[in-house]
Amino acid sequence: MSQTAFYLISAIILGGALGMVTSRSLVRSVIWLVVSFVGVGALFLLLEAEFIAAVQILVYAGGIVVLFLFVIMLVNLNELKRVEYLHRQWLPAVLLVCVLLAELGFMMWAGTQGSEPPPPDQISAALRTVNGGNIETIGMTLYTDYILPFEVVSMLLLVAMIGAIYLAKKRV
């Protein structure tokens, strides 16, 4: 059952990604991107990471996509319609990425040969039911063990916000 779910979700993710990369219209690309993001969220649910799935839907499919749509509406769409949409270098680029994919696949196949991790039925009990559910466990870990990285990342968000406002101001 979950095998079918995995292959279905993978098809949704990869189909959305391919549609985004190959679509000529920018708005259609964004819609394909939403499809891909929702697929990744479903994959996180399949991996029993409910909090990450919620964050994925909220931040990516909610926030980032709306930001992209705003910027697409700010720049001139009529200008974009008639330009050719591929770089001159598209064929070498695709070949290079195929080589990269082959390398990654070989690395993963060779790296996990003979040391495949055990099926998650017996290993996951300790992970998820410490204090109730996944969200509570993540909250406890985030605010005790990882409090310093959490603060650093909040500073990063503050800096990014100031920088984005400064860059998009009228007279830079």
Binding site: L86, V94, V97
Partner: peptide
């Protein structure tokens, strides 16, 4: 890895 490769193709190939 496949998702990463599709993203890399998009970065290298598209002009926008």
């Amino acid at each position: 890895a496949m998702l990463f490769s599709i993203g890399a193709i998009g970065v290298l190939v598209r002009r926008n």
